[in-house]
Amino acid sequence: MWGAFLLALVPLLWILWTVVSKGGHLLLDSQWWTNSQKGITARREGGGAIHAIQGTLIQGLTTAVISVPIGVMTAIYLVEYGRGRLAKAVSFMVDILTGVPSIVAGLFIYALWVTTFGFQRVGFAVCLALVLLMVPVVVRSTEEMLKLVPNELREAAYALGVPKWKTIVKVVLPTAFSGIITGVLLGLARVMGETAPLLILGPYSKSIATDLFSGLMPTLPTMINQDRTESLQPAVDRVWAAALTLILLILLLNLAGRVIARLGSVKK
């Protein structure tokens, strides 16, 4: 068993070591966290990744804001209300959505947003594609958490004459709160590291851009992609540093998920 554990650890440590040793030194420079890449060419050192970090965070949060209500409410429907054909169909659709490859989600939104409506490729289009990927994750994790809530709690609430909707809002959801948050954050971590839809819908820019509805919005994955084939050392270093930044960002998110889950759980 220990052997298997160590074996699983090897690639993880290997990746971490490679990324840290090749790009770690850039992250120690405060410029990395305060400046963008504007005006920095592949042969010049310097600049930072704040434009990409902001883009990734903004797109991640917007995606979460859209997908969490949809996902949680779908899960509530499936667990608390759903009976019969409709529930089966919804459940089936969520399964299908889970299996949609990210590039297909990206192409679908491209076909809708750019080809059909003729809009520009903007940050919000990326969010829409990411929503397609995040909703099924949120639905599935929330569903599992709601199923874990003991039926006795619901019955006790009904016995006191509490209506069903109030039971869900006041009893079921709070009990499952920590699990739901963990699921949401894991889903968020997944979409923030997503690359395929970004390649199609979110061209890179070297400047800071915070407007979701106009202009190009840089993100960490596209920043990595931009210079990934570059051979000049400054650009190569920045690619590794951006990769490390993305790993750290998602690690932080996962940790936050754990902490919130622990603090927010119902006290025994």
Binding site: T34, N35, S36, Q37, K38, G39, I40, T41, R43, R44, G46, G47, G48, I50, H51, I53, Q54, L57, I58, L61, S207, I208, T210
Partner: peptide
């Protein structure tokens, strides 16, 4: 806070090229 953190687009003018 993270989102509104003051990032800067101003990098020193290039010396090369």
């Amino acid at each position: 806070i993270a989102l509104t953190a003051c990032g800067s687009d101003s990098n020193d003018p290039g010396t090369s090229g």
